[in-house]
Structures are given as C-alpha cells and as structure tokens.
C-alpha cells in the first residue's frame, strides 16, 4: 500500500495526492476503508470490521468494497 502512504488523508475525508495535485473527497465508510488499507489490512478483515460497526451484511459490504477499490485503482490511488 505504498501509494496510499504518499497521499494526505484528512479526518474529514479530504484526500490530496501531491504527485499530481489532484484532490478527492470521501465519506465516513470510505475513510474507514482507506485507513484500514493504510494499516495493511486484508479485504476480509476490512469487510469484517465494517460489519462489526455498521448494519450491513457480508455480500453488500463486500460488493461495495470491491467497487470502491476499483475506483481507487482507476484514480491510481492504489496498485
């Protein structure tokens, strides 16, 4: 997750990528996912911690996570 470490992520969900000058905004769940990714958590671990904290089942949490990851990839924020 070296790419994510070079990105400034603020507590209110604002992301800044110094290498390109691009910025992004995300919501609460997005922020949680980004921070867990930074900690090197696996996708399963991320899904589990979301399920623990939020009212969501595994299928939906998983589907949304993978969509989110695809988006991060598209924006070159993760590998």
């Amino acid at each position: 997750m070296s790419k994510l470490n070079s990105i400034a992520i603020s507590d209110n969900g604002f992301l800044f990528k110094p290498s390109t000058g691009e910025s992004f905004t995300t919501n609460e769940i997005g922020l949680i996912i980004l921070n867990l990714l930074k900690e090197g958590k696996t996708h399963e671990e991320i899904i589990n911690s979301i399920m623990e904290e939020f009212d969501v089942d595994e299928i939906n949490a998983g589907r949304d996570l993978y969509e989110f990851l695809d988006f991060l990839k598209k924006e070159n924020l993760i590998d």
Partner: peptide, 13 residues
C-alpha cells in the same frame, strides 16, 4: 446497536 451503513464513495475535486 450498529450504525447506519452508507456505501463508500470517492469524488474527484
């Protein structure tokens, strides 16, 4: 009690 879930979003500024 669990929090209300909202799918993650990311928007480019």
């Amino acid at each position: 009690n669990k929090k209300i879930y909202e799918r993650p979003v990311l928007r480019k500024v």
